[in-house]
Amino acid sequence: MSNALNTMRGRFDFEHIADWIRPASSVLDLGCGDGALLALLKRDKGIRGYGVELDPDNLLACLKNGVNVLQFDLEHGLADFEDDAFDYVMMSLSLQTVRHTVPLLREMLRVGHEAVVSFPNFGYKPHREAIAEGHMPVSRHLPYQWFNSPNVRFFTIADFEALCTHEQIRLLERLAFADGEVVREDPNLNAEVALYRLGRI
């Protein structure tokens, strides 16, 4: 995962994620960036955690933050992890950067009892307006130009939920945000970022 995307990784969602995580549980954080979320969960929730991070600078930041970090390539799946190895497998603001979306979601729910994922909502109103004006959206959570974006999958909250239904993935909880505030009304239109707790059916 690129550094630029990591600096965009919303700290505001950390607290909400932390609310969902049981104390002393085990957590795998895919594309963990500098490990700040894991460090927080370790400190506040006493979790046992590992981050997966391909970028060497982020790996270094994780080591400095004192969290376990594994330099694995997520495109190769989660073969290094056993079934049910973790209570939670998380992926914060990275799902749109992974090519093998469905295999990865399946892997997350094989390795973890539950998955926690967040992603930028391409259906956010300003993004729709940009398209209507004839341009790909560029915003806080989509800070890239079309030609240098690490994002390879473009989807909305509605698209994601349809996929979950199709793939028999349970939507346990959802939170949607804009400007760091929780959005309740029509999140597919009004939210920049969506955060989900997912389970198996």
Partner: peptide, 15 residues
């Protein structure tokens, strides 16, 4: 690393 993970041990891995 795989065997260490199976035992829930603290491990970091750099390639």
């Amino acid at each position: 690393v795989h065997a260490l993970l199976q035992n829930g041990l603290n491990v970091s891995y750099a390639e």
